[in-house]
Structure formats: C-alpha cells, structure tokens
C-alpha cells in the first residue's frame, strides 16, 4: 500500500515547539525580566550549564562574559521574548544568573534631586 504515489506532507515548522523549550512553565510576573533588565552568568556555573537544554545553554553562552539585556538575548537567540523570560526565571532559580533590574521610572525621582545632580555636574565639568 505504501507504494502509492502519495505525496508526502512536508513539515517545515520547528521540530521542538516552544512549550517544550519552556518546559511548560508559566511566564514570570510582568515586572520581572523586562526588556531592559540586565543579566549575566554567575561565576563558576560552567559545570551546571552543561546539563541545560540547548536553548538555555545558548543564553548562558551569550551572557557568560558580561551583562546583556533581556531584549538583546531574545534577538540573538531568535527566541520569543516570553520564552527567554521563562528560561531566565528558571536559570535564576537554579542560581546561574545575576539579575540587575532596570532603574525605576523617573517620576519617582523628585525634581529637586535632579536639579541638584545637574548643578553638581555643572560644577564638576563646567557646562
């Protein structure tokens, strides 16, 4: 029966779907791992990273030598941002990452402080 000239269906989609890459984990809370959050690998995690999935290892390789933003990691690995965030949350849980959250929004800083900073800069460099 197999010799029928049936045209085979060609599968071109990714072999490993994203939910498997994410291991079925939920997205981290919105304020965690934002676009501009910076992450880098902890020292001495090479051994642990050998057991990571290929995707997580790709992320580790990217951030091994310095801080990189979440958005950049997503760009380099070609993984959707959400997946990168899930991977990072998992890796942070495993103690593989340093995470540096972006500065809180500017409106929290009062104007006087900013003026003082500006004045300070002016005195230091002479604007």
């Amino acid at each position: 029966m197999h010799d029928e000239p049936d045209s085979e269906l060609e599968l071109t989609t990714a072999l490993v779907p994203l939910f498997v890459i994410a291991k079925g984990r939920a997205l981290p809370a919105d304020h965690e791992y934002e676009h501009t959050t910076l992450v880098t690998a902890q020292e001495g995690t090479e051994a642990a990273s050998r057991t990571l999935t290929p995707e997580a290892r790709a992320v580790m390789d990217l951030i091994a030598d310095g801080f990189l933003s979440v958005a950049e990691i997503s760009g380099y690995t070609r993984l959707p941002l959400g997946i990168v965030r899930i991977l990072l949350a998992q890796m942070a849980e495993d103690g593989l990452l340093y995470v540096r959250n972006p500065a809180p929004r500017a409106e929290r800083v009062d104007r006087e402080l900013l003026t003082a900073v500006l004045d300070g800069l002016k005195t230091r460099f002479g604007a």
């Binding site: 779907p17 994203l18 939910f19 994410a22 939920a26 997205l27 676009h35 959707p80 959400g82 997946i83």
Partner: peptide, 14 residues
C-alpha cells in the same frame, strides 16, 4: 512572543 497571551498560545499549540 513578548505578550502574556504567549502562555495560552503555547497551550493551544500543545
């Protein structure tokens, strides 16, 4: 990919 709807999309994909 950056939206919270991603979780649901992954369930649909599963």
């Amino acid at each position: 990919g950056g939206h919270s709807v991603l979780s649901d999309l992954m369930d649909v994909n599963h």
